[in-house]
Amino acid sequence: MGRLLLIGLLLVAGCSAAPEPGTSNGPVFRGTVAEGSTVDRIRKRGVLKIGGSQDAPLLSQLDPTTGKLTGFDAELGRLLAQYVLGSPKTELVTATSETREPLLSNGTVDVILQTYTITPARRERVAFAGPYYQSGQAIAVRKGTNGIAKPGDLAGKTVIAGANTPSIAAIRQVAPTAEIVEFGSDPECLAALKQGRGEAYVQDQALLVADASKDAELQLVGEPFTVDPYGIGIKHGDEEFTRFVNDWLREIQKSGLWQETWKKTIGTVVRGEAPAPPAITP
């Protein structure tokens, strides 16, 4: 998958944000909203609650100088709020791989936008709109590391991975004899790699490219060896809201707003034209 793809989104637990200046004007839903539907509840509340991250460069990162979340996922979150509410007003809740599903099921958040790979197992617990982006598992090492050039080279090595992520199954598939060490977040995994607690780190290339753009000690090895579609997580069984979000995705793809968002976030690091958005699947 050549130059590849990134993405995911926002947070500050329990912290609300006013409409962000400079956000692209996106479409606004003009149709009828059913009483008691998810869209109706969001409108009555006046804010879209999103689960995500604030420490993912190019995807959803808090700018300490402005207090604004920047990146592909962060922009998409504001655009979805614009579609639902007519203004990009969001409330950002910090999510981890372990808390995403509980946050959806108990209604703490309306959506998860956080490099959330769609898998058959997750579909049994979460509804997904999208995919809205596509990435793949890739390998990162400390700069200057020798002996790891392809997935098979992970055999017998200590490999770092995020807990509860598709990286674990991907490592077991290509290198069954690797010893996997799990950590709870991308920053924790990066810190462990730099401390020598593992010889390689396997993660979505989306996140690794963003990490490498900020950290000269990190080196990516080879190309992605899986295909991972990112979805927008929605409470399981909420088919109406899932269709609603998919309709919004089709609108921003057709209008070119998806591509525009990519260019001003991920496209500032990844060379070339914006990729074609992935086909939305039911």
Rank of each mutant, 00 (worst) to 15 (best):
P151D: 00
K214L: 15
V93S: 05
S37K: 03
E188F: 08
G272T: 03
R271A: 13
T99M: 04
D73P: 13
S60E: 06
A138G: 11
P120K: 10
Q205N: 15
G184R: 09
L208R: 05
T94L: 09
I234P: 00
A18R: 12
P187A: 00
D204V: 11
A175P: 09
Q219M: 14
W248I: 03
V12T: 14
E91V: 06
M1N: 04
V159E: 00
T96L: 08
G46Q: 09
R197K: 13
E239I: 14
G51T: 08
T115D: 13
S185Q: 08
R125E: 12
V181Q: 14
T268G: 07
L113V: 14
R197G: 02
L6G: 08
L249S: 05
S53T: 14
P21H: 05
R250Y: 06
R78C: 06
E188S: 15
T177L: 12
Q137Y: 05
D63P: 10
P102A: 03
N25K: 15
D186M: 14
L79F: 06
I160L: 09
S53D: 07
K263P: 03
T99G: 00
R172L: 10
A163D: 04
E91M: 09
T165E: 03
A169T: 11
R45F: 03
D228M: 09
A200Y: 00
L257D: 02
I234D: 01
R41A: 11
I112T: 01
R271H: 11
P64V: 15
A206R: 10
Q203F: 12
G184Y: 07
K44T: 12
S87M: 09
L48A: 00
G233A: 10
A200M: 07
A140F: 05
L58C: 10
E101N: 05
E20Y: 13
T119G: 04
D186T: 15
L10F: 08
P277M: 01
G196S: 09
L193E: 01
K150G: 11
F72E: 03
F241P: 03
D110T: 11
A161K: 00
L190P: 00
A276C: 01
P21M: 06
P57H: 08
A163G: 04
A138H: 01
D63C: 07
R45G: 05
R172P: 05
P64M: 14
A170F: 06
G71F: 01
Y230S: 10
G77W: 01
S105I: 13
D215A: 15
V159Q: 02
D211E: 15
P88F: 01
R172T: 13
D247N: 09
A169I: 10
L207M: 15
T281Q: 10
A170R: 01
Q205E: 14
I180M: 04
K49Y: 11
K150A: 13
C15Q: 13
G272N: 07
G144A: 10
K263F: 04
G51K: 06
S185E: 09
K44E: 09
L207N: 15
G107Q: 09
A169R: 01
I112F: 04
T119V: 12
A74W: 02
